[in-house]
Design a protein around this nucleic acid. Structure first.
Lengths: 229, 229
DNA sequence: CGGTTCGTTGAGGCCCATCAATCTATGTGG
DNA sequence: CCACATAGATTGATGGGCCTCAACGAACCG
């Protein structure tokens, strides 16, 4: 267990690694940079998140990890987790689940980055954080130790744009900000703007097994038409 | 096994599903759409790719799958794969590997979508396809059954922009196009423009991106003795 | 040969990046 | 306690990259 300072680099981009880092307090982020120095944040990491989940199978990182606030990080040798995974069949399943969950989040972000305006992206992010952290109090307020620069890094924007856009959201009475926290005033309106579906992460609750409904009537095999590939 | 026609919808967005679909010929894509109808392609699926890998754990899709060319698709009941996974410990590991691989690709695309210009994205895509398909002939030419609309869907652009940008790449002598194929004339220059690192998929000399058809002999259990190489 | 799909081209405009300056809050040392 | 430094938020001006709309050409096909 170790406490890190704001901005501290946990793991360098492209570095080989043999340890897992687990955030147990504060915030961190996974990021990538282009050759010309632009930085895109790929994931925000909060309490309980594993920073480099894919080190389970890959030796080398394709991203860097950096603290965005003072944070507490647990470090474990990879060998230990691998041994655990060998002993407990459930563990690898959990890791798989996490991998797919990350996948779902990444997909959603890709959709935002590719197809949404600054306003939509910001609205989406606030909705997602609110649900994800589920630490919002009864007034819809939650802590957000991110600078506008960080948010810009997540949304593929500049900090200037984040500033102007969040002003807009405030002016429309959708959110309130202050003191490293955000209050979502009109959740439903914000969801509509950001095209956010609160369920998209935990769609079915637990990974469930067989279902009876047959759905392959949707996909109709086309008779061979001589086509070959 | 079934043959599908161009544009056919394999799975509808948000639909529950109890089958796996494996592309065994031709091309398909995973996509998401926003409420206002914009479509973002999340993945291109070619020979050996599993269209809905996360159905391994999730009951409901968060994306749709559609053919982008005439294609051959294998359909398997989910129960069968789940049973297999229970019997063979290696299988779930393979699925996990695939999940992480998808993760790496999604991350890279997110970086492109968030931080790269149209020209950079297109260059990156061509480089990636060239490496990924590894079907390029000795002249760097490979088949590409995508319309400009499809490419725009992948890159978060409009088809008009894709058109103008690919004209630019042609004018600079970097690529040639024609007859549903692309020739990469100056691979190194294209890589530089798109900030493409040919190795980012094959982490640490892993053989190659594994295809479902040959997955079992490609998967190498990670040695527990720490990092060598 | 008309219909459809896809590629191509042009004109106009908006969203967002860029650059740069100012303002505020916080912290630090003398 | 104040002068100063620094980080982050805010604001303005300007320009460019990409979207939008719209039309036309080209290839394919029943």
């Amino acid at each position: 267990m170790a406490i890190g300072q704001t901005g501290q680099e946990l793991m360098r981009e492209g570095e080989p690694t043999d340890h897992f880092h687990i955030v147990s307090g504060g915030w961190a982020c996974r990021y990538k940079t282009t050759r010309d120095g632009a930085r895109q944040i790929m994931a925000l990491l909060v309490h309980g998140d594993i920073a480099n989940l894919d080190s389970f199978l890959f030796d080398r990182l394709t991203y860097g990890v950096r603290l965005v606030s003072a944070a507490e990080v647990l470090t474990n040798p990879r060998d230990r987790l691998l041994a655990l995974a060998d002993q407990h069949a459930g563990m690898i399943k959990t890791l798989t689940w996490l991998a797919f969950a990350e996948n779902a989040i990444l997909s959603q972000w890709a959709l935002c980055l590719g197809r949404q305006s600054a306003k939509q992206r910001l609205a989406h992010l606030f909705c997602e954080l609110s649900v994800w952290l589920d630490s919002a109090d009864s007034h819809g307020r939650f802590d957000l130790p991110l600078t506008q620069e960080h948010i810009a890094g997540v949304l593929g924007l500049t900090s200037v744009r984040v500033n102007r856009t969040s002003q807009q959201l405030r002016a429309e009475g959708l959110i309130e900000t202050g003191n490293c926290a955000v209050t979502i005033v009109k959740m439903d309106a914000l969801c509509r703007i950001g095209d956010f579906k609160p369920s998209y992460l935990h769609d079915d609750g637990d990974p469930a097994y067989p279902r009876a409904t047959r759905r392959d009537d949707r996909y109709q095999p086309v008779p061979h038409t001589g086509l070959s590939l």
